Simulated scan of single mutants.
Amino acid sequence: MADSPLELIQHIAPGEPTLPAYARLPVNHCNYPAIILGSLTFQRYPEAIFLDNVATFHQTLFNRLDKIEAPADRAMAFETYMQASFLLSAPEEAGYQQTERASGAVNAVRQNNKKARHKADYRRLLRGWLFDSDSREAAVMKGWVESRFGLLARNHKGPLRDFESEIYFNYTQERSAGLYNTNSLESQLDLLYSYCQYELHQRFPDRRHYKLYRATNRLDEYDTLFQGSKTRSAVILNNLTSFSSSLEQCDSFGDTLLQCQVPFSKILFFPDLLPGAFRCESEYIVLGGLYQVSKISI
């Protein structure tokens, strides 16, 4: 049985830092508050995270997956379910209405942009993130993490420290634009995360962590809450962050390499989750918060 939030708090060592209030929200939509999810304690003693109502509304999917042995066949069943559940191939049946043709060149451009948005789905969000973690799709995903897990975005095309800054305004604008006229994108991400967690449990039932790597050229932009030694420290990562399982590939993306034990329950996407869908041999998309990391050299 999973530890309660109170039991997890009791694991915290005296004087150990917790996720600061400026990096989290007081409410979220899962079974642990952000102060727990974003803590070093949760990194060390991870438990399963359940998003509100996913099991209630989509138990049929997981019952079906239980009967399928091959991961590739489960992935196919998942994608078929997503198509049917969110009517991804029939947006009109999901409530999308094509408005009358607008007059004038400017209105025509706006109309075309509006039409394109109904085609956005979880695959396009992932593709957008994998191409650019500062894209509009990435803004939607970071906003989803804020809503579901209560972990505030720390960076999007620049540091998000001041809620009245132009950078923060542009982030919220991109997030809103990315959700406008779409078909339950955040609910699609809910199910993607839950399916990812199901797959990790099926494939690695006895494991709780993955050793992953991240390269950065801007280590000074991370909030460092304590420096344990010259090579170990606790830093606040962005609320959604890319890691790699390949140290060699990671080495080409920055001058500082970080090694981290990432809890399975904080992984949104891993390379073989949807076989053949994306060209990302080693990239993992991970929920952020406070992490103990180690600097390494090759």
Rank of each mutant, 00 (worst) to 15 (best):
V262E: 01
I267G: 06
D121C: 04
R279S: 15
Y193D: 01
A48W: 03
E146D: 12
G104W: 04
F57I: 10
L273S: 04
V54E: 05
R214T: 06
N181Y: 08
P271V: 09
I296P: 05
S265M: 12
L191F: 01
S133L: 03
T18Q: 03
A21P: 08
R123Y: 04
L191N: 02
K266T: 14
F243V: 09
A72Q: 08
S184K: 09
Y22D: 15
Q259D: 02
R44F: 00
F131P: 06
S176E: 07
V54S: 03
V293H: 08
C260V: 14
L151A: 09
Q261L: 11
L61Y: 12
N107D: 09
A94P: 08
C250N: 14
R214Q: 05
D255C: 02
G289W: 01
D220A: 12
L88T: 04
D190H: 00
Q202P: 01
F278M: 12
L273Q: 07
L37Q: 04
I68T: 11
I236S: 04
G15Q: 13
G143V: 04
E16N: 10
Y180K: 05
S244A: 08
I296G: 01
R232K: 15
M1Y: 04
M141F: 03
E164W: 07
F226P: 01
L8S: 11
F243L: 07
V54F: 09
A21M: 11
S133T: 11
H209F: 08
L219T: 02
V140P: 00
G38T: 07
R117W: 02
H58V: 04
A120H: 01
R175K: 14
D220F: 12
I36E: 00
E164R: 13
Y180N: 06
Q59R: 13
S233I: 09
S245Y: 00
I68Y: 13
N113D: 10
K67H: 13
L225P: 09
V262I: 15
P46M: 02
N238K: 05
P159S: 05
L273N: 05
T99K: 15
L258N: 07
L125R: 00
A120P: 00
L160A: 10
R136I: 06
C30A: 02
